[in-house]
Simulated scan of single mutants.
Amino acid sequence: MSGCPGSRTIDFSEKTNQEGNDSGKRPSQLRQWPIQMHLVSPQAPYFQGKDVLLAADCTAFALGDFHKDYLKGKSIGIACPKLDSDQEVYVEKIKSLIDDAKINTLTVIIMQVPCCFGLAQIAKEGAEKASRKIPVKQVVVGLEGNILSEEWI
């Protein structure tokens, strides 16, 4: 494969079905690499027929149990609606995830700050452009790591 080795598609979902061990450490629930929306491919095997989490970059840092409560069992794409460029690509990727990868559900998790709602809008636009219809959930996280709302949109 050409390009950055860090962009190589890797599916390690078989290794993420573990629970904690005797030391109390909780294993990562990350199922794949890469995760940044500019780098993910809707054709990657870890998206096919799966539940997908589209997470604003800051959410994993705000939520103490992000892996356990939101990432477990899902494939992921991360993005920042304020800082990422060429976000129209994200709309097309979401459309492709729905129509081509035939994902089951899309959960969009964002922070409560106004710019973050742009990611939910991108997800809605991609879902509206798709020919298949799937459930889309929006989760809004407060600045102190509390869940402010969870709703199907």
Rank of each mutant, 00 (worst) to 15 (best):
K74D: 07
K133E: 02
D65N: 14
V140P: 00
L39F: 11
Q138D: 05
L106I: 09
T16W: 04
K124E: 10
L30G: 09
D57G: 11
I103V: 06
C116Y: 08
P27L: 08
G49E: 10
I76P: 12
L30H: 07
D84F: 09
A123L: 04
P34R: 01
V108Q: 06
L71R: 07
S85R: 15
E144V: 10
S131H: 09
S149Y: 06
P27E: 10
V136F: 01
Q48V: 13
T9C: 07
A79W: 08
E144K: 10
D22T: 11
P114C: 02
L97N: 01
T107V: 08
G126C: 03
K129P: 02
M111P: 10
K124M: 09
A130S: 04
R132W: 03
P45Q: 15
R26Q: 15
A44V: 02
A56N: 12
W33L: 05
P45G: 09
K133D: 02
R8V: 09
E128S: 09
K25Y: 15
F61C: 15
Q18T: 13
C115K: 07
P135R: 02
L30A: 11
I122V: 03
E128Y: 13
V52T: 10
S96K: 13
P42R: 07
P135G: 02
P135S: 03
K50C: 06
T107C: 10
N104P: 08
H38T: 14
C115N: 05
F66I: 04
G20W: 14
D86G: 15
W33R: 07
V113P: 04
M37W: 13
P34D: 01
L143V: 03
K74Q: 13
R132K: 05
T59M: 10
G77E: 07
S28R: 04
S23A: 11
D65W: 15
R8H: 11
G24Y: 10
N21E: 15
V136D: 00
S149G: 03
D69N: 13
Q29D: 15
V40D: 01
I76T: 11
A123F: 02
F12M: 06
F117K: 05
A120V: 01
L143M: 08
T59C: 12
M111W: 15
I78R: 10
V139M: 01
F117G: 04
S96D: 11
L148T: 01
G49Q: 09
E92L: 08
V136T: 01
R8N: 11
K25Q: 15
L63N: 05
K50G: 06
A130W: 12
Q138E: 05
N17G: 15
E144F: 13
V89N: 12
K102N: 06
G64I: 13
K133Q: 01
S131C: 13
G49D: 06
Q32I: 03
V139T: 00
R132A: 02
L30E: 08
I122T: 09
Q29K: 14
K68E: 15
R132N: 04
Y70F: 13
K82Q: 14
K133C: 04
P81M: 12
